[in-house]
Amino acid sequence: MIEIRGLTKRYGDVTAVDGLSFDVRPGVVTGFLGPNGAGKTSTMRMILGLDRPTSGSATIGGRRYADLPTPLREVGALLDAHAVHPYRSAGKHLLALARGNGIGRRRVDEVLGLVGLADVAGRRPGGFSLGMKQRLGIAAALLGDPGVVLLDEPVNGLDPEGIRWIRSLTRDLASEGRTVLLSSHLMSEMALTADHLVVVGRGRLLADTGLDAFVRSAARETVVVRTPGARPLAALLEEAGATVRPGAGDELLVTGVSGATVGDVAGAHGIVLHELTPQRASLEEAYLELTGGSADFASAGARPATPAETQATTASMTTSGAAR
């Protein structure tokens, strides 16, 4: 169990993490999601005691990371797969880390086998592919058989085989009752791996929710209606509290009421419907809607937004998203 409370980190004028509070629970994969620059890595670095919080705290089972007697036995982390000395062999790299936490050579061989690097233990990581470096980084994270595993963007740059491997590995780790926090800026990846989502943007918490609830709350359902009586139906639906916009041709795009309500209203007034299609926004859309305006380097309107503006952007993206 990781507990983040009011965590804040400022680097000079830049606030990387801004009053973040959430828990990461055991037994599930928690996806830590946000655009690049949202503060995910800074948060993980503070959990690991690498960066000092400006204020707030991050604890593991109630203790600060630095107070853990043998940290690798309790927390395993992969922050940067490239963080290996190019000339120190994979096995020696792991052994040096293991020694510091009183972990023996046998466990080093074990984790090398676990990640499929047993054959290259004596080779220098300088010549490793990114996928092999990721595996080496994960081997390091698993050295102490830890109850808490943090992986920062573990699928970045991996081939499909490697991505699938990470997916099943993280699911397995969670099903063994471990606490797994997995960061990514890709919603599609999280949708396949995570059970629970913590979404951040500009260092602030945007959502802390189950995967399904996230989609339901973040994306409003749009009902596409085709009818010869578009004009009267639109008026009736608006009376019923819906927002109606014209779509392509004789389509109406209805938000704010369910598909059933649209059908009921039409039936009660004898209006013929040719089509009634409830559409749920995709995960990707839900995510973009939530983080819209909080991306550090958004392609449009590159000027930093205030929180109020961020909300305004989110609201406008809701409507433009629905008008698709």
């Binding site: 690991l48 922050l79 963080a83 000395h85």
Partner: peptide
């Protein structure tokens, strides 16, 4: 400095936080 240059210092500090 070989630890800083290769980026392993964070890994080392995470292994030995004292």
């Amino acid at each position: 400095t070989s630890e800083y240059a290769s980026g392993t210092m964070p890994v080392s500090v995470a292994a030995v936080p004292r």
